[in-house]
Design a protein around this nucleic acid. Structure first.
Lengths: 240, 240
DNA sequence: CGGACTCTTGATTGCAGTCAACTAAAGTGG
DNA sequence: CCACTTTAGTTGACTGCAATCAAGAGTCCG
């Protein structure tokens, strides 16, 4: 049940069986949330970090004129906040993009686990570093890549992230968000996302249907998108 | 000498005199670096976090075709890495945009200070939260705001950040980067940055000369850029 | 005083946004 | 089970913001 979270952290430190038990015990109440329901204000206790176990979620900022930017995408195994702190007041919102099953870990419990166990500390810091690196790579995409490259890069990123938690095979994975959501993630219009998808499809690189992404030629897709998995900070991630 | 760093952290926790002494002792070797010199591989010890004390620096990713995206801007008082971890391998580069004077704090020293002192822990986590929030706001700018709004927003952001460390008055501050660097920060071309600057100048909102930014009408500039300082997570930051 | 940046401006191009209409698919209720 | 509504995806025509190309002016500094 807690597998995605623990499977992810295995990439960040050499965890023992006992370490994993401690991590499993951190995760307390479990909830199923409807899509589009606000996750952030929902902890049964106040100072609590949401962890996605199943489904996809995101964090976004609403701008003026209805413009929206999704600032982070949360997949199974992801912490929705840094593990040591919660914002005093929310300036952005966390919602499920699909129905989500969620666990909560209290800051206090995480803190004592971190203090007593250096491998857990290492794993959680690695996770935070990965989240930052993904943020920065997205900024580089949105700032400097073309629409086609951005869309292709997003497919590569999500595929790689799902592989980290054993939720993707070498050429396919779930795809649970629609074109509007892709556009708000990448700073594009939905119409243009649609055109870029068509190009990728017609180039024979991907198929997208029934909530499933199939990548027909990963190497070509990565080359086209300038996707280099080294920013994941995982050993051997390129051959993963 | 360490003032910017400590002045910044005061916004994150209610630090006592003793807390500030501990922070000052964290900072060890001090160095002056030339502009454009790589800061990240320069710690005298290996596991060490650079802290900017004077001058401006940045982190960037080089993409193909010479495209570049600056992913973070570092002003006096800023930590250039999260305080608990260093990447195993660098996927991006940290350089000075001006001559920079730099301090280094070892991860080990930070760790023991954090463990022994909850206010220091709180302050450092707040700092990390702020860095993330600034990153996300930039992503929203680059993804969803027009060129004029982006440039105006950047002025507001830097002005606000320099106010946090008492390096700006209510209507002016240093401005140490050129138009090329602004363009790589905001995902624009340098030519278009120049045109946006002209618009802001002709609207009577700002003057930019001699490494100095003068904001003639902060309220109007903020309104035009949709800048809302609440994302700084500082109490009363709007009236700061 | 010459050379190197940096800034400025005009002309042109092109990528991506907007508007609009239509199709397909997925719910929903009689 | 089938009309009906809603949501998601698709495509074309047109527009516009920002990129690119190019040339010239200012400014700093050895």
């Amino acid at each position: 049940m807690f597998q995605p979270f623990i499977r992810k952290l295995r990439h960040g430190a050499n965890l023992s069986q006992d370490d994993e038990k401690i991590l499993a015990n951190l995760i307390k109440p479990l909830r199923n949330m409807r899509a589009r329901h606000d996750l952030s204000r929902e902890g049964s206790e106040p100072r609590v970090v949401p962890i996605v176990l199943d489904g996809w979620a995101c964090r976004y900022r609403m701008l003026e004129n209805g413009r929206r930017q999704i600032t982070a995408l949360y997949l199974p195994g992801d912490l929705c906040e840094p593990f040591g702190v919660l914002p005093r007041c929310m300036d952005d919102t966390i919602v499920g993009l699909t129905p989500v099953s969620l666990a909560y870990a209290s800051l206090a419990a995480i803190g004592s686990a971190v203090r007593s166990n250096p491998r857990i500390e290492e794993a959680l810091w690695w996770d935070l570093l990965l989240a930052t690196s993904i943020d920065h790579e997205r900024l580089a995409s949105v700032g400097r890549r073309t629409a086609l490259e951005r869309v292709g890069h997003l497919f590569c990123e999500v595929h790689q992230r799902l592989r980290l938690v054993d939720l993707a095979d070498s050429s396919s994975c779930d795809w649970l968000i629609n074109q509007f959501e892709i556009s708000d993630l990448l700073g594009l219009s939905a119409v243009h996302v649609n055109r870029s998808l068509r190009q990728l499809r017609e180039a024979g690189l991907i198929t997208l249907q029934g909530h499933r992404l199939i990548i027909h030629d990963l190497d070509k897709l990565r080359a086209l998108s300038y996707f280099d998995p080294s920013y994941f900070h995982v050993d051997g991630s390129s051959s993963l």
